[in-house]
Amino acid sequence: MVVRIMDNLLKNKVKEIIENLQEEELAEVIDFIEYLRFKEEKEENEILNDVELIESIKRGLKDIENGDVYDFEDVFKNV
């Protein structure tokens, strides 16, 4: 619920700012938003294309499924 309220506040703030921008400034905003989307997609694709990382995640999920896990405190209590 709190996240939804914050999300709405942020969106309303963005709408308010955008309504007061000149056309040239809006073009810059659009460029920046497209850059952010491109960057996120690029990072996501890098992760999904990292075969070693994906295999490691799969092994970790299998370990969790099989109960082959240790408590954080137990692993680091003697360090």
Rank of each mutant, 00 (worst) to 15 (best):
V51I: 14
G60W: 11
Y70F: 07
N12K: 03
L9E: 01
I5L: 13
V14S: 04
L10G: 01
E40W: 08
L53T: 07
V51T: 15
N66F: 05
Y35H: 07
F76I: 15
V2R: 14
N66Y: 03
G67M: 12
N8M: 11
E24N: 07
E43I: 15
L21C: 02
A27Y: 13
F72V: 12
V75D: 03
N20Q: 02
V3L: 13
K62S: 09
S56P: 02
M6E: 15
N66C: 01
E25L: 03
V51N: 08
E41I: 14
L61Y: 05
F76M: 09
N78M: 12
E73K: 15
L26S: 05
E25W: 03
E16H: 08
N78S: 10
V3Q: 12
F38P: 01
I57R: 02
G67Y: 08
K62F: 08
E43A: 15
R59I: 02
N45I: 12
D50S: 00
E34G: 05
I30K: 11
D74W: 10
E40I: 15
V69H: 04
L26D: 06
E40L: 12
L26Y: 00
I47A: 04
K13W: 02
N45C: 07
L9R: 05
Q22I: 05
K39E: 14
E34C: 00
N49F: 04
Y70E: 08
L36N: 11
R37Q: 07
E46R: 11
I30L: 13
D68N: 15
E65T: 06
M1W: 10
N49H: 07
L9Y: 01
I33H: 01
E16I: 05
V79M: 14
E41G: 08
E28W: 07
I30W: 07
E73T: 14
K13H: 06
D50Y: 01
N20T: 09
N8T: 06
N78T: 14
V29L: 10
E44V: 09
D7V: 13
D68W: 10
I57P: 02
M6G: 01
V2Q: 10
V29S: 08
E65S: 09
E41W: 05
E28V: 03
K15Q: 13
V29G: 09
E16C: 06
I33V: 10
V69Y: 15
I33Q: 00
D31I: 08
D31F: 08
N8L: 04
L48K: 13
L10P: 00
K11S: 08
Y35Q: 01
F32S: 13
K13N: 11
L48A: 05
I54H: 04
R37H: 02
K77E: 09
Q22C: 05
E73F: 10
D7E: 15
N12C: 00
F72Y: 11
N78W: 11
D50L: 00
M6S: 09
N12L: 03
D7F: 15
E40F: 02
K62Q: 12
L61G: 06
F76P: 02
V69M: 08
E16L: 10
Y70A: 01
G60Y: 08
R4P: 01
N78A: 10
E41T: 12
I18E: 11
F38C: 07
K13V: 04
V2F: 11
